[in-house]
């Protein structure tokens, strides 16, 4: 898992510098937001001069999935006191969630579950910070003709394939991507949001339609 975090974090650092952000701001994003996908999009939107409100809404839409992860971890970690749950929540990422929930659901953990979770989540945090710092430093040195901005969709492709688990999620992705392409000239850089929401709606509709077809058979 960690080898994947390094290029992803570097891309986030490079993107921040490419967008014209101060190096300190690029690093601060990794500490304060600590969610790669949204950091990349925030950098891109700020670079394009989007309105602050749109940047915030888009980033929060991207990070909405954390609610789902958090709720799904609740049966395993929710009984802990606040001094545990607050830092555990801060460290929640796609990768930490995937590792922990697989182990909690199908495997056995030796000792308290929060220790297993931290063992997965903390190294990701540390590597993420170092990788973004390196990316921020590197971003200033790379010439524009290399088109390193293209690394952004490439990194997201890696995240996309594993979430295409069934037909409704494939439909959600096709509609989300298609609508976002059509809406890329939408005002206020709302294309991503419009695409994302259409995709979610299509996924839900497809799931209900498939279920109904199954019941009729």
């Amino acid at each position: 898992m960690l080898p994947g975090v390094v290029p992803f974090g570097m891309t986030a650092g490079i993107a921040a510098v490419e967008a014209g952000l101060e190096p300190a701001l690029g690093l601060a994003m990794s500490v304060i937001i600590f969610a790669g996908a949204s950091q990349l999009v925030v950098a891109q939107l700020i670079g394009e001069g989007a309105l602050p409100l749109i940047v915030v809404l888009t980033a929060l839409l991207i990070n909405l999935r954390m609610v789902m992860y958090s709720a799904s971890l609740a049966p395993h970690l929710g009984h802990l006191p606040l001094r545990w749950t607050a830092p555990l929540s801060y460290l929640l990422t796609d990768q930490a969630y995937a590792i922990s929930i697989t182990r909690f659901t199908y495997g056995r953990t030796h000792g308290p579950k929060q220790f297993f979770y931290i063992g997965a989540a903390f190294p990701i945090w540390a590597v993420w910070l170092i990788a973004t710092a390196f990316g921020v430093w590197l971003g200033a040195a790379i010439p524009a003709s290399w088109q390193v901005g293209f690394a952004l969709p490439l990194v997201f492709l890696v995240l996309l394939v594993p979430v295409l688990r069934d037909r409704p999620s494939i439909i959600a992705a096709l509609v989300g991507g298609g609508v976002a392409i059509l809406a890329h000239e939408a005002p206020y850089h709302l294309g991503l949001t419009i695409g994302g929401l259409s995709g979610v709606a299509s996924g839900v509709i497809a799931e209900m339609a498939l279920k109904r077809r199954g019941e009729n058979r």
């Binding site: 996908a37 695409g195 839900v204």
Partner: peptide, 18 residues
């Protein structure tokens, strides 16, 4: 149910236009 489709829809909406 809706949250389940957020990752697929949103990531695709980032990748495709980029």
């Amino acid at each position: 149910r809706a949250l389940r489709y957020v990752p697929a829809a949103v990531i695709a909406a980032i990748v495709a236009p980029a």
